[in-house]
Design a protein around this nucleic acid. Structure first.
Lengths: 210, 210
DNA sequence: TTTCCCATATGATCGAAATCATATGTGGGA
DNA sequence: TCCCACATATGATTTCGATCATATGGGAAA
């Protein structure tokens, strides 16, 4: 297995261990470009890969930003050519899963296919959740929806990354997030642990959501 | 096949034709509830199904709203129990794809599995695009990004549904969409066909996107 | 034909989030 | 040890989208 321990990728089970090729990509360099024949799909090991489409009016549209552990270009398995550029925002390493090899293994190994279907299903679920949160208009609603999702069935949301990153995911600025957290706490809707890494949701009487 | 022609669903190829069960769901009634043993996944034939999770603080969070032709609860194939409620916003009919049957057919038929993987991959792609658009802060940027996606490689975006629906997808009110369209046209960034169903993107000099 | 609903469209006002500024604490690296 | 970078935090001001109001035209239904 080529993985030397420096990466963060989780095993997708898409191919036999070690069959993925590891590529280093300089900042600003491309993993693939639009119209290139599809070579396969990828997983970010470390770094950040931006998927960009060039529109007819000359402007670029970002379709996705893939971070550590995320897969991208999954649909290329079923296309002849890529339909966007994949550019490294940072110096990155990516794992390449060869298209023909993957298709062969998926066809031959139903369990592998099932794992991949499960992986994609979870992606769809998570993305729909994010879209739902972004559909809420007020910062308070978005933050509460996010915290409720984090908390799951329990009453406590654990915060595992900087609020700045969460602010971006919620489509808000970090200033608004800090302010809104303070406001929600003043209103007794949440209770922040002193360490700031866990938040208790308190039953509300009055507000409505979604 | 039970489909009597009244529905709008496209064939998913998940099961042999006719193996899906058609269910009628009254407005406000549930297709399934949280903690129910998973029976399978679903496709909206006609109507609108809302996926809702109940948080610990007693509030409800909408995870997704599935419309005509869309699938939902895909991940239930790999779970013992549902993790949210599926409630009909409108009187609806849905197709139920039995879990055990689907898993059997996916395992036995690699081509079927490949089709399903392709379907999920396209979903992921589309949702990531929507998230990227919702990540833009200004109405103008969102609208232009949307139009560029519609246009693809060509210079003309075809509008196939009411602007009100598009406004919702973009996380904007329809008023802002109409105003922004007018502004973009005044600025010569777009050119609306008189019939209002197609929009030409004009090369810009000055603005940057994404 | 007449009516009604809805998409399209635009104006006025308000409020919430973005922006710009600034401060503190903390952890890591030189 | 001393910085420096960054997360956290809050204040002041501005801007832009939400909201409410109103108008018109077209298509479906009565």
């Amino acid at each position: 297995m080529m993985n030397d321990g420096s990466g963060t990728s989780s095993d997708l089970g898409l191919l036999p261990s070690g069959a993925a090729k590891r590529l280093a990509v300089d900042q600003g360099a491309s993993v693939f470009l639009s119209e290139d024949p599809t070579r396969g799909l990828f997983q970010v090991d470390k770094g950040r890969i931006r998927l960009v489409r060039h529109a007819a009016d000359g402007r670029a549209v970002t379709l996705h930003v893939a971070r550590d552990g995320e897969t991208f270009a999954e649909a290329s398995l079923f296309a002849e050519r890529y339909h966007c550029d994949a550019i490294a925002d940072l110096p990155s390493t990516v794992l390449q899963f060869d298209k023909a090899l993957v298709l062969t293994h998926l066809a031959a190994d139903p369990e592998r296919a099932a794992h991949w279907i499960a992986h994609l299903s979870r992606q769809v679920q998570a993305l729909r959740g994010q879209v739902a949160v972004l559909g809420l208009k007020s910062a308070g609603d978005r933050l509460l929806a996010f915290l409720r999702m984090q908390a799951g069935t329990g009453g406590t949301a654990v915060i595992d990354r900087p609020w700045k990153a969460i602010a971006t995911e919620l489509g808000l600025t970090h200033e608004v997030v800090y302010r809104t957290l303070a406001k929600l706490e003043r209103e007794r809707l949440i209770l922040r642990d002193p360490d700031g890494r866990s938040i208790e949701l308190r039953p509300d009487r009055s507000r409505r959501s979604s």
